[in-house]
């Protein structure tokens, strides 16, 4: 565990909390892509099955349970509690265009052809593209509430910190997880365009991020 990894996990936790609190307090999920949240819940479900097979550390176990609980709570709020506020006509990204290649790739490229490994690989590839419906929705509506942009900022920061974590681990313990690193770099690249808009618009105090 290094400072980049810890900061990354905290940033990830902050992002999830920001979104959950925003939906709960505003009693609305307008502008939020429910599809992305379902994909994230699927990412955690397929990745954290090892909760039942290995014990790595109390921190590892607790964080996995917290991430699972909060992502399902977010999906519940969007599709059950506040479903009448769900912006379905703008959340139209075809997730099958993500799932089919991700499923195919996880069968082709994995460390071992075992259910747990393939599901883990699936979750790694899926996480890389899970934010696409949300970014697509923002481009479609042309705007995003500032809270939503803060959510995306911390999500992108978590990915950037994980890359720093991998650089650190490579130099200090010769650690290199090819599937996680390649997929993580691709995922982080998707946030670059958003980061530019976030810095140039949201941090200038705009109430909403209006796309050009």
């Amino acid at each position: 565990m290094n400072v980049f990894r810890l900061a990354g996990d905290v940033s990830h936790l902050v992002a999830i909390i920001i979104l959950l609190v925003k939906i709960w307090r505003s009693k609305s999920c307008a502008g939020i892509s429910g599809k992305s949240q379902v994909l994230f819940a699927l990412v955690f479900t397929t990745r954290y099955l090892d909760l039942f097979t290995v014990f790595i550390s109390a921190y590892n176990t607790i964080m996995k349970v917290v991430f699972l609980a909060m992502s399902y709570a977010t999906v519940y709020l969007i599709y059950m509690r506040f479903r009448n506020m769900y912006d379905s006509e703008n959340d139209t990204f075809r997730v099958e265009f993500l799932l089919v290649p991700v499923i195919g790739l996880s069968f082709l490229e994995n460390y071992a052809f075992t259910p747990l490994e393939i599901l883990w690989t699936f979750s790694i590839f899926l996480e890389a593209v899970a934010i696409m419906p949300q970014l697509f929705m923002i481009t479609k509506t042309g705007e995003a509430e500032s809270i939503t942009t803060h959510y995306l900022f911390f999500l992108g920061l978590y990915r950037a910190l994980y890359i720093a974590n991998w650089v650190w681990r490579y130099h200090t313990e010769e650690f290199f997880d090819q599937i996680a690193v390649v997929s993580g770099v691709v995922q982080t690249i998707f946030y670059c365009d958003f980061f530019y808009l976030y810095v140039t618009r949201v941090l200038r105090g705009k109430a909403k991020m209006i796309l050009p």
């Binding site: 990894r5 990830h12 590892n60 964080m63 460390y111 490994e117 997880d177």
Partner: peptide, 10 residues
């Protein structure tokens, strides 16, 4: 397939 290394990251 490489040896499956310990997955300690989230």
């Amino acid at each position: 397939t490489e040896d499956v290394q310990q997955k300690d990251e989230l």
